[in-house]
């Protein structure tokens, strides 16, 4: 299911009217949107990315999208993915493979490991 379809279903049936899976699909879509599709053309680093960096981040995002995270209830999904998105965005704003970049990368791994 696509993120957009999931979001439509959530809007029609309500947050608790759909399986948690729907929320997961929606937020996977949001990750792709915020991290890959929305590029900040006014940021010196994010405005141009090398092919290598693009490949790395795209693979990272796809890896997250393909991971099955475990959630007890739907209201855990939003804050969790907000953290992931924030971390990936900070990576977008950092020089590729710089100290900061690697730091955010290891933080990201810690976050994703929490719910694997």
């Amino acid at each position: 299911m696509r993120g957009k379809e999931a979001s439509e279903q959530i809007n029609i049936l309500g947050d608790d009217g759909v399986p948690i899976n729907y929320h997961l699909s929606f937020w996977r879509g949001e990750v792709i949107d915020f991290v890959i599709l929305q590029q900040d053309a006014f940021d010196d680093i994010d405005k141009q990315t090398s092919l290598e960096r693009q490949k790395f981040l795209l693979e990272k995002v796809l890896e997250i999208c393909e991971t099955d995270f475990n959630f007890e209830s739907f209201d855990e999904v939003n804050p969790y993915f907000k953290r992931i998105i924030n971390n990936l965005k900070q990576m977008n704003y950092s020089e590729y493979k710089s100290e900061k970049f690697n730091q955010y990368l290891s933080e990201l791994t810690t976050i994703t490991d929490e719910r694997k």
Binding site: D43, P79, K82, N86, K89, Q90, Y93
Partner: peptide, 11 residues
Amino acid sequence: FSKAEVAIRSE
């Protein structure tokens, strides 16, 4: 909001 929800460049 929390910092993660705002998600502005850390600088």
